Simulated assay, not measured.
Amino acid sequence: MADEVVLYTLGGTISIAGTVGDGSGVGLVARLGGADLASDVPGLAETGVPLKVEDIERVPSADLTFAQVLDLVQRASAAVRAGAGGIVVTQGTDTLEESAYLADLVWPHPEPLIFTGAMRNPTLAGPDGPANLLAAVLAAAEPKARGLGVLVAFNDELHAARWVRKAHATSTATFASPDAGPIGRLEEERVRILTVPPRRTPLPIPSAEQLDRVRVGLHTAVLDEQGDELDGIRERCQGLIVAGLGAGHVTRRLVPALTDLAARMPVVLTSRAGAGPVLRHTYSAPGSEIDLQNRGLINAGLLHPYKARVLLRLLLAAGATGEEIARAFAEHS
């Protein structure tokens, strides 16, 4: 018999079972627990994978916090130390790429940790939750998935948390890895691993109090900025992510503010494009990647802005120095 897989539920579309009125005109969402979700998956019982269910939260993923995700990782880690062969987490898709990446940064075990969810809830025609949950459980129980880090199971594909992103607001094929493609697929209830993503040394888990003290801003560069868009950042934040144009560019009008901020806090340069890297030595005009790096901005490489924010906040909360942050981004980029 396969080792036990533990299923943790956090809510999200996969769990929605309709709405009920509360008399105020605002519908309250009724949510299914993990046992109900599992019972609705055709063929799950026939896999022979023992499944233990723990309901943690029943909330939209927009309401999840770093502390909640890291608490779940610690629960999952304890379950693995107690003998679980793999872990599955269900949550809403809106922040799933960030939750999975946060978990991947700190996950120390070879046992698989699989995130999944749904785009169509169980009250709609053709809900995708059952198929996604089946794929996640099979991947969590698959010996070949060991050592791959945190994965996302969706639409019969497996994606590395490092590369995956939500690429469509409504499609059931929303999760994609533009820079790498899926690392595995589900074929006739069989998990096929296509490639092995690189693993990094797990980062320390900061306390909820440490996390609460850290704010990381995110600024997206757009056409015709005037240069004052970053006013007040240094009073509110301890770090900043810049989602630059193209391969990592901003208007020259923002350069003085970014120069000042980079002297006071870690400022990380990413691309808003959705795929492809921030370049390092191609463009040299004011506001280009060469200019910004010379002014102290940290190049995030292939890391998307949202994931760069996850990494920077985790590092700052753990007390990393500027040099340690630069090294971490060089390693994870």
Score class of each variant (00 low, 15 high):
5 V>A: 09
5 V>G: 04
7 L>A: 00
7 L>G: 01
7 L>F: 13
8 Y>Q: 01
19 T>V: 15
22 D>V: 11
27 G>Q: 13
30 A>H: 15
37 L>T: 11
38 A>D: 11
38 A>I: 11
41 V>L: 12
41 V>G: 12
42 P>T: 06
42 P>F: 08
43 G>K: 04
46 E>K: 13
55 D>W: 12
56 I>R: 15
57 E>I: 14
64 L>C: 12
64 L>R: 03
65 T>W: 09
67 A>M: 09
72 L>H: 08
79 A>I: 01
80 V>M: 07
80 V>K: 05
82 A>C: 09
85 G>V: 08
89 V>I: 14
95 T>Q: 02
103 A>Q: 04
104 D>W: 00
104 D>I: 02
107 W>Q: 04
110 P>G: 00
112 P>L: 05
114 I>W: 04
116 T>F: 05
117 G>Y: 03
119 M>F: 09
120 R>V: 05
122 P>M: 03
123 T>Q: 14
123 T>L: 13
132 N>L: 07
135 A>M: 13
136 A>T: 10
137 V>C: 10
137 V>Y: 07
139 A>E: 07
140 A>E: 07
141 A>I: 10
142 E>T: 14
146 R>T: 04
148 L>C: 01
148 L>V: 04
151 L>Q: 10
152 V>M: 00
162 R>K: 13
163 W>N: 00
163 W>I: 00
166 K>D: 03
167 A>I: 07
167 A>K: 11
172 T>C: 13
176 A>Y: 06
177 S>W: 01
179 D>C: 03
179 D>E: 05
181 G>V: 09
184 G>K: 08
184 G>P: 09
186 L>R: 13
187 E>F: 15
190 R>H: 14
193 I>N: 03
195 T>L: 10
195 T>Q: 13
195 T>P: 06
196 V>E: 10
198 P>M: 07
198 P>H: 09
200 R>K: 15
202 P>K: 04
205 I>P: 01
206 P>W: 01
210 Q>S: 12
211 L>E: 06
217 G>N: 04
217 G>R: 06
218 L>E: 00
220 T>L: 14
222 V>N: 12
225 E>C: 05
226 Q>A: 15
229 E>N: 11
232 G>K: 06
238 Q>K: 10
241 I>K: 00
245 L>C: 05
248 G>E: 00
249 H>P: 02
251 T>I: 05
253 R>F: 12
254 L>K: 01
255 V>D: 01
257 A>W: 12
259 T>D: 12
259 T>N: 11
264 R>V: 12
265 M>T: 08
269 L>Y: 04
271 S>M: 05
275 A>D: 10
276 G>Q: 05
278 V>I: 05
279 L>K: 14
279 L>I: 11
279 L>G: 15
286 P>R: 09
287 G>H: 01
289 E>L: 08
290 I>D: 10
292 L>R: 08
293 Q>I: 15
294 N>G: 15
294 N>Q: 14
297 L>G: 02
299 N>V: 07
305 P>K: 07
306 Y>D: 14
307 K>P: 07
308 A>E: 04
308 A>T: 06
309 R>W: 03
310 V>E: 06
310 V>G: 01
312 L>M: 10
313 R>K: 15
314 L>G: 03
316 L>F: 02
317 A>P: 06
318 A>F: 09
328 A>N: 08
329 F>Y: 09
331 E>D: 14
